[in-house]
C-alpha cells in the first residue's frame, strides 16, 4: 500500500526547509498524508522554524547602529580609484602612457548608460502587457517566477526575493526574462491589482556587457580563452585553433546567459583578425 518507501528523513528535512523540487515535494506530501506521525513532526518543525524567524527576524529590520554604519565610508569619486594604490608602479606607467587627459570621466560609473535603456524598455513592456501576463495569479514560489529572479541572482551574485506587493493589493501575474531595447536582457515581473491597474518591474544586473571581450592565448601548448562577464570569469581550454576557439567561446557565452545564438555565423575577415591580434597582445 505504501508507494513512498524511498522517502527518508533527508526528504522530510528538505520538505521542512522548502528545498525539494516540485515532483519530490508532491511525493513527500502524499507520504505525509499516509503517515500522520511524520506529518505532525513536520508541522512542529515548521512551527519551530517560524518561531525562530519571529524571534530573531526583526533584528534585520532595525536600522544599523552608528558604529556599524560608520564602518562604511562613502567618499567623493577619487581621480584614481584604489587600484592605483595596489598596482602603483604599473598603473603609473600605463597612465603616463595613455595620457592623463581622460582621467576622471572615463573612470566614473557606467550606471547611467544602462538606466535610460531600462526606462525605455520597461515603459514599452508595460504598454504591451498582454504578452507578459501569463495567469490571473501565480504563486511567488513557483518555478516560473523563480527563473528570472534566479537569472538575476546568478548574474549579480546578489540574493533576491520575489517582491510581495499584496499589501498594496497587487498580485503577480507574469514573470519572464525579456529582451530590452538594446538587446540586453532583464528580468520582468508583472503585477495587477484588484482594480485592473498594472505594474511592471524590470531588473537588470548593473554591469551588463552584452558582448564581452574574449582573449585567447596558448598556455602549456593548450589554447585557452577567457573573458569576464559582470562578476563572473570564464576560462575554457580546448584543442581548437584560435578562430574556432573564439567562435565557440562567443557562442558559449551567449548560451550560458540564455541568449539566442549569434544571428549570423561570423566571418573571420580582416577586421576580426586585427581585433583578435590586439586582444591576444593585450
Amino acid at each position: 500500500m505504501d508507494d513512498h518507501d524511498d522517502i527518508n528523513d533527508l526528504d522530510l528535512h528538505g520538505y521542512v526547509d522548502d528545498r525539494l523540487d516540485p515532483p519530490r515535494r508532491r511525493a513527500v506530501e502524499a507520504y505525509l498524508d499516509q503517515h500522520p506521525d511524520k506529518a505532525e513532526w513536520v508541522r512542529r518543525c515548521r512551527l519551530q522554524s517560524e518561531a525562530m524567524r519571529a524571534l530573531y527576524g526583526p533584528v534585520a529590520e532595525e536600522p544599523l547602529p552608528g558604529r556599524l554604519a560608520s564602518v562604511f565610508k562613502p567618499r567623493r569619486p577619487a581621480r584614481f580609484p584604489g587600484l592605483v594604490r595596489r598596482m602603483a608602479p604599473l598603473a603609473a606607467t600605463l597612465l603616463l602612457g595613455c595620457g592623463l587627459g581622460w582621467s576622471a570621466g572615463e573612470f566614473l560609473p557606467r550606471a547611467d548608460a544602462t538606466t535610460p535603456v531600462l526606462r525605455e524598455s520597461v515603459s514599452l513592456a508595460h504598454a504591451e502587457a498582454a504578452r507578459a501576463i501569463v495567469a490571473d495569479h501565480i504563486a511567488p514560489s513557483s518555478e516560473l517566477v523563480r527563473r528570472p529572479i534566479n537569472w538575476v541572482e546568478q548574474a549579480s551574485m546578489v540574493d533576491l526575493q520575489v517582491p510581495d506587493l499584496s499589501r498594496y493589493q497587487f498580485s503577480l501575474v507574469g514573470s519572464q526574462v525579456t529582451a530590452t531595447t538594446n538587446r540586453s536582457q532583464a528580468a520582468q515581473l508583472s503585477y495587477r491589482d484588484d482594480r485592473g491597474r498594472r505594474l511592471t518591474l524590470q531588473i537588470q544586473p548593473r554591469i551588463p556587457e552584452p558582448d564581452p571581450e574574449i582573449v585567447t592565448e596558448k598556455r602549456n601548448d593548450v589554447r585557452v580563452a577567457y573573458w569576464a562577464d559582470g562578476p563572473l570569469m570564464y576560462v575554457i581550454a580546448s584543442d581548437l585553433p584560435r578562430e574556432e576557439t573564439l567562435a565557440v567561446a562567443r557562442g558559449l557565452n551567449r548560451s550560458i546567459r540564455k541568449m539566442p545564438p549569434p544571428e549570423t555565423e561570423e566571418e573571420f575577415g580582416l577586421a576580426e583578425r586585427v581585433r583578435s591580434f590586439f586582444q591576444i597582445r593585450g
Binding site: 567618499r75 580609484p81 595613455c98 572615463e106 560609473p109 550606471a111 569576464a228
Partner: peptide
C-alpha cells in the same frame, strides 16, 4: 582613448556625488 583600463571594481553611486 584607445586604451581603457578595466577596473576590477565598479563604483556604486550613493547620491550627492558620493560613490562607494
Amino acid at each position: 582613448c584607445p586604451f581603457k583600463i578595466h577596473w576590477p571594481r565598479q563604483m556604486v553611486e550613493r547620491g550627492q556625488g558620493e560613490v562607494m
